[in-house]
Computed example of a mutant assay.
Amino acid sequence: MPSRKGRTTVRFGRAGRSREAAARAELAGEASAEAAYQAEHAEAEDSDPTPLRLTPGADLTAAAFFDVDNTMMQGASVFHFARGLAARKFFTTGDLVRFAFRQVKFRVSGEDLDDASDAREEALSFVAGRSVAQIVSLGEEIYDELMADKIYPGTLELARRHLDAGQRVWLVTATPVELAQIIGRRLGLTGALGTVAENEDGVYTGRLVGELLHGKAKAAAVRALAAREGLDLRRCTAYSDSVNDVPMLSVVGTAVAVNPDGQLRDVARRRHWQIHDYRSGRKAAKIGVPSVLGAGAVGGMIAAGFAVRRKMR
Rank of each mutant, 00 (worst) to 15 (best):
S137N: 11
I151V: 13
E178M: 05
L163I: 13
G166Q: 06
E122K: 14
A133T: 11
V127W: 06
L179V: 14
A148G: 07
A123R: 15
G184I: 02
V136N: 08
E157V: 09
H162P: 04
S125L: 10
A128C: 10
L138K: 04
T155I: 08
P153E: 07
G184F: 03
G184L: 00
I151P: 02
I183Q: 00
Q181K: 08
P153D: 08
E122P: 07
G139D: 05
M147Q: 02
V172D: 01
A123L: 14
E140Q: 14
A123W: 09
E157Y: 11
H162K: 05
E145M: 09
E145Y: 07
F126T: 12
I182V: 15
F126L: 15
P176Q: 12
E157H: 14
L158K: 08
E121F: 14
L163G: 10
A180G: 00
L158A: 01
E141G: 01
R168A: 00
L158R: 12
R160K: 14
L163R: 14
G129Y: 12
V127M: 12
K150T: 11
R130C: 13
R186H: 07
R168M: 11
W170S: 02
E141M: 06
G139Q: 04
R161N: 09
R160H: 14
D164C: 10
S131K: 07
I182W: 02
R161P: 03
E122N: 15
Y152Q: 06
A174D: 10
L156H: 12
R161M: 07
A133N: 13
G129E: 12
R168C: 04
L124K: 06
R161G: 11
V169D: 05
V177N: 03
L138A: 11
E122F: 15
I183N: 02
H162F: 11
G166K: 05
Q181C: 06
Q167D: 10
G139F: 01
V127P: 05
S125M: 12
L179Y: 15
L146T: 10
E157C: 08
A180Q: 05
L156C: 03
E157K: 11
L163V: 09
A133D: 14
A174K: 02
A180I: 02
A174Y: 07
T173V: 09
T175I: 02
L138N: 06
V169Y: 04
A133G: 08
E121I: 14
P176C: 12
Y152C: 12
G188A: 06
G139H: 01
W170N: 00
I142W: 00
T155S: 13
T175C: 05
G188S: 02
M147T: 01
H162Y: 04
L179K: 00
R130I: 08
F126E: 10
A159T: 03
R185E: 12
S131V: 00
V169K: 08
A159Y: 06
I183V: 12
A174Q: 06
L171N: 00
D149L: 05
F126A: 15
I183E: 00
P153S: 09
V172A: 01
S131L: 04
V172E: 00
R168T: 04
I135H: 09
V177I: 08
F126K: 13
R160N: 11
R168K: 08
